[in-house]
Design a protein around this nucleic acid. Structure first.
Lengths: 118, 118
DNA sequence: ATGATATTTTAGATATAACTAAAATAAAAG
DNA sequence: CTTTTATTTTAGTTATATCTAAAATATCAT
């Protein structure tokens, strides 16, 4: 629940993937796992714990199932940013374009060619 | 410049520390390093590179110095969030309070005490 | 109780990130 | 050219995160 913890939680692509799945509807841990078959159930469970501890997800138990959902309120403006990121492909392009003018370029090419021993 | 890269860049406390230093005024790499003596100059330089590659910082050379500054525009609403985080101690408290009602509690105390072998 | 399903937790392996020390690059000054 | 100051880069180490496999916990059904 410390400030960087929220950002750290969002930093992992895996956790973002999960957050996206539970963004607009709650899902059971199993359903989430089924949506990402390249990883173990245990791994998903651990990430769900991270998200919960960071305050980005919450869960409710029902029988032997546990339903998870995102805590969108806890994210504030960040939530809207994520939504944009997800369904607005332009976001990436815009950022990339903005970067162009800053880039230090592909190896500025040294001007003074000093003698090398050997 | 990929989307999670921005968040990943912000996730590290070290990079946040640096970003904060260059938020409202540009500083040389050396000045930044002097502000965090627990770490090597080389380490600071690497983090500056990360920030630059993520689009969160930019630099200009002047003689043998290099001045760094944050690219606040690139962060959008996230920038304002960071500012709040930094000079508004309430942010942390508010988030912590919000979390209270979600917490799965400190070990829910098992009800059925099953026999253990041994 | 026993067995099946759903999920969490633990211990240990592997991948990724961050750091250090030293070498390399670059500009300024002698 | 040599030395000094400022910074970057590289190679290798250490720390942290993430994953797997197996065991543990919990609920439901029989």
């Amino acid at each position: 629940m410390t400030a960087p913890a929220v950002l750290a939680a969002l930093a992992s692509p895996r956790r973002q993937e999960i957050l996206r799945l539970i963004w607009s509807e709650e899902r059971t841990a199993g359903a989430i796992h089924r949506a990402m078959p390249d990883v173990t159930f245990g791994a998903v469970s651990l990430q769900l714990r991270s998200l919960t501890e960071a305050g980005l997800a919450e869960s409710r138990a029902e029988g032997r199932h546990r339903f998870y959902r995102a805590r969108r309120e806890a994210l504030g403006p960040l939530g809207r940013m994520l939504e944009q990121m997800w369904d607005d492909a332009l976001w990436r392009l815009k950022l990339a374009a903005e970067l162009e003018h800053t880039r230090r370029g592909p190896r500025p090419r040294r001007r003074t060619v000093k003698a090398r021993k050997g």
